[in-house]
Design a binder for these strands. Structure first.
Lengths: 355, 355
DNA sequence: CTGAAAGCGCTTACAG
DNA sequence: CTGAAAGCGCTTACAG
């Protein structure tokens, strides 16, 4: 025999009994189905009934239990953010953007950092998706370009949106900036400053943006009858340390030096600048340096770094918007090609100047 | 009539039917209760039965549905991280630590950034906790020192652990470093370098650490027969900009200057250093500067900043450990005073030197 | 050592 | 416009 559950007072000593849909129904004198209708703003409820239910719900501080809704219904109100990115600033902005949009629809965010090099990656994602039903997943590089990741998510039948994907652009909805054009404009900026001998530090090869940025660089060069010189194009991995390494080989004794260096991201530019300072190469007097991303450190180092601003938080917001609007599937439930390209910004500071 | 659910193949076109406890029970020829026992590693199952169930589960790729477990049982496998902190590096480290420990027990992390200045804070937390049942909550400054926040969580009866709390230390289990001693040792370090005239930039007054760090500073001074000088103690707010403001008033024309400045965190030290550079004050030649936290930027600026390293990720791990071990309640369900204090590190770099 | 029943708090499909 | 029944996939008490 279940004791009638009435209006609850907080139990002294912690622990409250929360009221349920049954409590509201009883107090309002309707069925739980009607309460459900009111809570979910379904049509076909008499205004008077609606008010009665509303009042009862307010009085009891009723909040629908997410877990129960998920189990019974088709939505979980949970969004998953999968990433493997060592840059806190990027992750932070992503999370803010996703949460801002998710909250508009009463969704919550589960963060699921993954090790993109784990041999178990696919199994761990499949297992995760079987364990906790998610309404959708947001994927950032490099995960968004990994076949096993996409396969696991598609197999589970969970909608997903990718941020800055490189491979299979039409495979899912996505959000990006135009990395090619951004790098193109940055290169044009250097050329406009009189630079002809421009070096380039490539990004991590597993990140699609690395290739796109280099593509934009080369495009701008060629349009100006210039060619990238192999000895001035160095492989980096997006890290501070790899920027130092690139600088070391770029500034090798005796070798001819470019007058400007375009680093595929800011951290490598920082490493490069630190190394330059150590060996007495002045920036921007001796060499101009530009980066990409506009991380917070860009105005911490001296000189402040000329760079490209990527609206990461807005990209995350847009990705979540695509997910929640379900503007992602056609009538057959197949993902439709939806790509939102957001504006970037060329931020001119002091690390590059007229040659 | 429900069609018998058998071994499932991925539906072409996306969407798999996942197998349930019923499928496993049927295949193994046992009741669902027995499957439940095996999955939850409960005792009293014949080894032979256990194996049969295990095999069936493996064959069907069975993963217990988290939502169903939560609804039926007393655990949700969800941990909430509440914060309102603008420093990405800190949040990132917190999240990593929590997730690392949470995964050991198959828990997931829901992140719930809050606006600590919102008038709705208490209601929004209460509502959140009523909506999604959490197994526990981790609280960081400044939220961990807000009465309304603690009240909302306690009323909901959800266990919580605080990181670096200042107020009511015994009110809940917590994890911290000894900010007083850290600041004390840093000050001693400066004194050992011959500094007697030491300025101090206070942290944000809403963060408990601000007061503790100042306390350690004063303690070290007094033990050496020194006194803080009011005109050299400036209010800051943990931000880069507030460091600039502090520097501006500290370096006001004509005023006597300290030989060293202890900034309550690194960002303010960065602001201070940038301002110093602008007005031609050399660091560390003219003035030594030290910070606190060891954020990534500390080795980006020049000179690299002498600072205190806080093991944020380990603190988060420890906090989650306290939560999951339930070493947090006594036999009456009241929280027991458990505080773990983790070691900090004095990181000596180039921004401070012998006077 | 094992299982049948009830129930967690909702939504879904139906019936009226 | 409203409701009674069934069921989501588990766990909790109980019974044997």
């Amino acid at each position: 025999m279940k004791p009638p559950s009435q209006i609850k007072a907080p139990l002294s000593g912690g622990g409250t009994t929360t009221s349920t849909i049954n409590d509201v129904a009883r107090l309002a004198g309707v069925s739980i189905k009607t309460v459900s209708r009111v809570i979910n703003k379904e049509p076909n409820v008499r205004e008077e009934t609606r008010q009665k239910v509303q009042e009862a719900a307010t009085l009891l501080h009723y909040r629908p239990n997410l877990l129960a809704r998920s189990l019974a219904g088709s939505r979980s109100f949970l969004i998953g953010l999968f990433y493997d990115n060592p840059v806190p600033h990027y992750i932070d902005a992503m999370q803010r953007g996703v949460i801002r949009r998710a909250r508009e629809d009463n969704h919550h965010l589960l963060i699921e950092p993954q090790d993109s090099h784990s041999p178990d990656l696919e199994r761990s994602i499949s297992s995760l998706l079987a364990t906790v039903r998610l309404d959708g997943v947001i994927l950032t590089p490099p995960l968004c370009d990994m076949a096993v990741v996409l396969h696991a998510i598609e197999t589970a039948g969970v909608p997903y949106v990718r941020v800055s994907p490189f491979l299979n652009p039409g495979r899912s909805p996505s959000v990006r900036i135009d990395d090619v054009t951004a790098a193109y404009e940055m290169t044009l900026h250097l050329i406009a400053q009189g630079h002809r001998d421009i070096g380039f530090i490539l990004g991590h090869p597993e990140h699609g943006a690395s290739h796109l940025r280099y593509e934009g660089f080369v495009k701008a060069l060629r349009e100006n009858n210039l060619e990238p010189r192999a000895e001035w194009v160095k492989q980096g991995f997006f890290s501070y340390e790899s920027g130092i390494d690139a600088a070391r080989s770029l500034f090798a004794a005796g070798a001819p030096r470019p007058t400007a260096i375009f680093s595929s991201n800011d951290y490598m530019a920082f490493g490069l600048m630190a190394y330059a300072q150590q060996i007495g190469v002045r920036i921007p007097e001796d060499i101009s340096v530009v980066g990409f991303d506009d991380v917070p450190g860009a105005i911490l180092v001296w000189p402040h770094v000329t760079t490209i601003r990527q609206p990461v938080e807005e990209m995350a917001y847009a990705a979540t918007d695509l997910l929640l609007n379900r503007a992602t599937e056609d009538e057959n439930g197949k993902p439709i090609e939806t790509t939102r390209s957001l504006p970037f910004g060329l931020i001119v500071r002091e690390s590059a100047r007229q040659v």
